[in-house]
Amino acid sequence: MEKPLPIVDDLTRPYWDAAREGRLLVQRCNGCGRHQWYPRVLCTACHGTDLAYVEAAGTGRLHAFSVVEKTPNIEFADDLPYVLAIIELDEGVRVAANIVDVPQEELRCELPLRVVFRPTADSSIVLPCFTGATR
């Protein structure tokens, strides 16, 4: 069974296009200046509707993680064990991603990370993932 891939829509297409080029985007509100994740048509902080994508530095810290050893989701069975993580980007927003190429014993909250881009079964989709900042 194939893993679920993002179902891209008009609002999110620039994000996935950029990921394919190795760039990580987040949204920023032109009204209040706050960064926002995930992209929406409104700013959840000031409720303004003038938002734009900006390129993120691609660095952040591991906020929370779990090494998934067993899963009922059989499409991920071949990936076990894999790391589900929440990363706090330097821009202040949090994203979900997998941590790759970090030994399990080195995983800890607040570990510095940087984005890496991983191909998927669909050549049009490249998934942002994260690895240790020093790797």
């Binding site: 891939l5 779990s66 990936d79 589900l84 979900a96 997998n98």
Partner: peptide, 15 residues
């Protein structure tokens, strides 16, 4: 932005 990374129910509470 989340499902492609495989968030099983147990793993979300594990976070």
């Amino acid at each position: 932005f989340e499902i492609p990374y495989g968030p099983s129910t147990v793993s979300t509470y594990a976070l």
